[in-house]
Amino acid sequence: MISITGHRRTEANPSDDIDNNKCDINSCGNYTLPIEFPFWIKTEGNNNRCGYQGFDIKCNNQNQPLLNLPESGVFVVKGIEYEEQQVMINDPEECLPRKIMLNRGFSLADSPFQLANGFMYRNYSFYNCPYEPESPVMISCLGSSTSNNVSYSVVAVLSSEPPQRLLNLSSCHFVTWGLAPVPSYIHEDYWTISDVDVQLQWNEPDCRYCLQHGGRCGLLQDSTNDHAACYDLPRQDQDLSRKARLGLTIGLGIPGFIGIIGLLCLLHHRKMRREQRQQSSRTETEFSIMNARHPQAALMGLDGPSIERYPKTEVGESGQLPRPNDTICSICLSEYRPKEVIRTITECEHYFHVDCIDGWLKMNATCPLCRKLPARS
């Protein structure tokens, strides 16, 4: 069986015990944030196959989940959107400017994350200025300090702006500068909002399609590398016969001569269905045995660009087809009609309605008739 996540493809050993790869959803004590794949709580004796590299979480003595960014330090995880693959973080003391000053910036290097849409880097210069209680530009979470009987507060000014034009800095002292992640909607020349959660996103592992379709994402059981696979994906082949049911309903509702034609078409479809069942009985048996052995792992399909590489053909007015005897789409069991578009799997030269085969290939990387694996998968 082949498990595919993103652009990775790996063959799974049939003898693997997939249940060993089913991990519980954890949390840090009474902290309500659920921790699940690709994140995992790193503790002694915990199964490291339950998480992805760079997504390990530690719990502090306040039961807060902490995420370590190698170049920027430790942050509290405030929320995780698994289907959107986004995580919200903040400084444990909710004073991100202090962390930026100590680390001389914010960096996501050597981590699997990047800034999410809606956030951007801005370069700030930090100054120690005489304390003004009513000043709207000082960073409140840094408080104030006293030196030579003078109280000081910290001000962050955009490095690209001339400081003297923005603020009288003649009595201020430059401290440091650093890149800070801030929301794109903030256009002020000063950094004063210090308690906004920073939103990050990740691209690998890509579990969005799996989760959005009710599956469970996890590491491939027999792989020593971080290859992800989709498990427990519900079967969705029950929607493939909607066109046939709709066609039958319309045919029975049309009176007179058109109704008789519809009845004749239905009888013809039934005859072709019996022939298709005889032709595919062997492959369906093999597919059922494969599902019985591996009920939890799902065969991932092809992506959009791979599907579009297979040629499409429009049926002519005469209804002439590449194979004159193959007049029925074996997926929806409807007869090909003029002006309909069909797609051909070049490896086995079987063809189907474009909508039917595209939906099939998104879920299964094999031909529905001969079960051959297309070379492009």
Rank of each mutant, 00 (worst) to 15 (best):
P163R: 08
S153C: 15
V182P: 01
N60Q: 07
F55H: 13
R208T: 09
T224N: 14
S72D: 10
G247I: 03
G105D: 04
C356S: 13
L219P: 11
H227M: 02
I186E: 07
P92G: 03
M138V: 02
S151Y: 07
F287I: 03
E286H: 07
I4T: 05
L333G: 01
L179S: 13
S281N: 12
C370K: 02
L321V: 02
F106V: 09
L299N: 13
A297H: 10
G218R: 15
I100L: 08
Q236S: 05
C210K: 00
P65T: 04
Q62M: 13
Q296V: 07
D24R: 14
R277T: 08
C129Y: 00
L264R: 02
K372G: 09
A375C: 06
K78Q: 10
S171W: 01
H269I: 15
N47E: 13
P65K: 00
E286N: 13
V354D: 06
A292E: 10
E347D: 14
M300S: 13
R371T: 12
Q212N: 12
C230D: 00
L266W: 07
F113V: 00
T176K: 05
E308S: 13
D206N: 12
M120D: 13
R242E: 02
D16C: 03
L333E: 11
Q296F: 03
Y351E: 12
V198W: 02
S3A: 08
I100N: 01
R309C: 04
D326S: 09
N21G: 15
E340F: 08
S144A: 12
V155L: 13
N225W: 03
N149W: 06
I186L: 13
G253Q: 14
P183Y: 00
R337F: 04
T146K: 09
E349C: 05
L373K: 14
V175M: 15
F106T: 09
M88W: 15
M101W: 00
V182N: 09
R277S: 01
H353M: 12
Y127Q: 12
V175C: 03
T313I: 14
F287P: 04
E188R: 08
G29D: 05
Y209C: 06
I357M: 01
L267I: 15
H268C: 12
Y209D: 14
S318G: 07
I342E: 03
M120N: 14
L200Q: 07
